[in-house]
């Protein structure tokens, strides 16, 4: 973060693609400005020396939570398909992938 690059519309387009968002031109413009301001604020973290500090991803000291491998019922197929935008022959239907 020492040399934070200036955020450009091209950066926003790159990230939007990673996030699978098709932004409008107006959204790209406003997000470029808003994200730049938020990132500038976040810069203040650089005031802290954290070289010797371990990261906290999680506050509970739990690891490898295991349980007994017991057979239990799962969602029935027709229930799992009830919210599908499109379903056919007991499957989720999506647009053709292979042309």
């Amino acid at each position: 973060m020492e040399q934070t690059p200036k955020l450009t519309v091209a950066d926003v387009e790159y990230v939007a693609n990673l996030a699978r968002l098709s932004l409008t031109d107006e959204e790209k413009q406003s997000l470029t400005e808003e994200l730049a301001r938020i990132l500038a604020y976040i810069e203040k973290l650089n005031q802290l020396d954290t070289a010797e500090i371990p990261p906290t991803s999680h506050v509970l000291s739990l690891s490898n939570v295991l349980r007994e491998d017991k057979v239990a019922p799962s969602l029935r197929r027709e229930v799992a398909l009830e919210n599908a935008p499109q379903a056919e022959a007991e499957l989720f239907k999506v647009p053709k992938i292979i042309e």
């Binding site: 973060m1 990230v15 990673l18 996030a19 968002l21 808003e34 938020i38 973290l45 650089n46 500090i53």
Partner: peptide, 29 residues
Amino acid sequence: KRRIMLGTYALSAGYYDAYYLKAQKVRTL
């Protein structure tokens, strides 16, 4: 969308250590 964009940016290649990992260290503090 704003938060998805911010989060994706912070986790994207080249920025993970500078942003996400840094924030996790500050979380420890």
